[in-house]
């Protein structure tokens, strides 16, 4: 038995098949990511049945690549970890089934991991985490403010009541004729334009820490449709800048509000939207003036999107707590942290 703690981690909750080997919860030995974006682009969004089919095609190939790149064999492994929710049930099931099978075949403990915990623990690859910490989790499926009170202890203190921020990006991207996924291109256009439309900042200034993006999305779509009807052409850069400013304003304001109510020394920005330049800039600027002592941790782009290394990092915490699953482990598509 090796001294090293080596976790073989699986992630397949949406449209990325990923397998990683993580050492001692902090070192990525391999992080194979097979992305299906090119496939789902055909349909303007992720089609669950297509995603599930791709996961089956990819899964064993990803396992072998992950082990080979990490230069480890099954005999070296300490445990197997897998995302069991939240996510698309058909997608989750491929990772869960494969991980269970590997764990069973090699008599290894199986660690079930919450996908959101994975996103937050991606920050552990940047630097050690200091508890309690606040995490802003923004992705295509989620927009949440999460307090991490101790290792592996999560509580939601604010969440979206309708669309996720990333989802709103994809929907308004479609109106602008941007192919899925739209986040990166909207972010680029936003930097070329000005906030001239002043879209509503929903729930901003309210006492709670919740979000709402469906009103913003509707306001955006109505503005564009109205202009179309009267034959007016709107500036795409200004539209993108105005949309992004509204999203970012709310995300930043609510995060500052959360920091006032829950004093912490570290803020983690997690999830795919953490790659957004506009959000990174605005958050850094707001912290500098309002909370200069708070240390903001934003994982590199490769680790903010879905990947298995982050699942390995979260699994390291669960392994210390001996939180294991048996062979009956099933996918839990609507898994979530408890509300504080």
């Amino acid at each position: 038995m090796s001294e090293r703690e080596l976790i073989l981690a699986f992630e397949s909750s949406c449209d990325e098949t990923s397998v990683a080997v993580v050492e001692n919860g902090v070192t990525i030995l391999s992080n194979i990511i097979a992305t299906q974006i090119n496939s789902h682009k055909r349909f303007g969004g992720v089609v669950p049945e297509v995603a599930s089919r791709h996961h089956v095609e990819q899964i064993t190939d990803c396992i072998n690549l992950a082990l080979a790149e990490a230069k480890v064999s099954y005999a070296d492994l300490t445990a197997v970890a897998v995302t069991y929710g939240p996510g698309l049930v058909g997608s989750l099931l491929i990772g869960v089934t494969a991980a269970k099978t590997v764990a069973y075949a090699h008599h290894l403990p199986l660690i079930p991991v919450n996908h959101m915990a994975g996103h937050i623990y991606a920050a552990r690859f940047v630097k050690p985490l200091v508890y309690p910490l606040l995490a802003l989790m923004v992705s295509g499926g989620h927009t949440e403010l999460v307090m991490v009170t101790a290792p592996g202890e999560f509580a939601i203190i604010g969440e979206t009541r309708d669309d996720a921020a990333g989802e709103a990006y994809d929907k308004i991207g479609r109106v602008l004729g941007i192919t899925y996924p739209a986040g990166k291109e909207v972010d680029r256009l936003a930097h070329l334009g000005q906030d001239t439309f002043h879209f509503p900042r929903a729930m901003d200034g309210e006492a709670n820490l919740d979000f709402s993006f469906s009103g913003l999305k509707s306001a955006f779509i109505n503005t564009v449709h109205h202009a179309d009807q009267i034959g007016e052409t709107l500036d795409r850069n200004d539209l993108a800048a105005s949309f992004q400013a509204a999203v970012v304003d709310v995300l930043v304001d609510k995060t500052m509000q959360a920091l006032r109510e829950h004093p912490v020394s570290q803020l983690v920005i997690a999830g795919g939207v953490a790659a957004n330049q506009g959000l990174r800039e605005a958050m850094t600027a707001a912290l500098a003036t309002q909370f200069p002592a708070v240390d903001v941790v934003i994982p590199p782009v490769r680790l903010t999107g879905d990947n298995a290394a982050m699942i390995g990092a979260a699994a390291h915490i669960e392994l210390a707590k001996q939180h294991f699953a048996d062979e009956t482990l099933n996918a839990v598509p609507n898994l979530n942290f408890a509300r504080a």
């Binding site: 049945e49 599930s52 089919r53 089956v56 899964i59 064993t60 396992i63 072998n64 099954y74 049930v89 058909g90 099931l93 491929i94 089934t97 494969a98 099978t101 590997v102 075949a105 090699h106």
Partner: peptide, 19 residues
């Protein structure tokens, strides 16, 4: 059933590959 097929096929291909 698509989901049903994937459970057995994923189990079988992973077991065969890993061992």
């Amino acid at each position: 059933s698509y989901t049903g097929l994937r459970i057995a096929v994923t189990t079988a291909k992973t077991l065969a590959d890993t061992l």
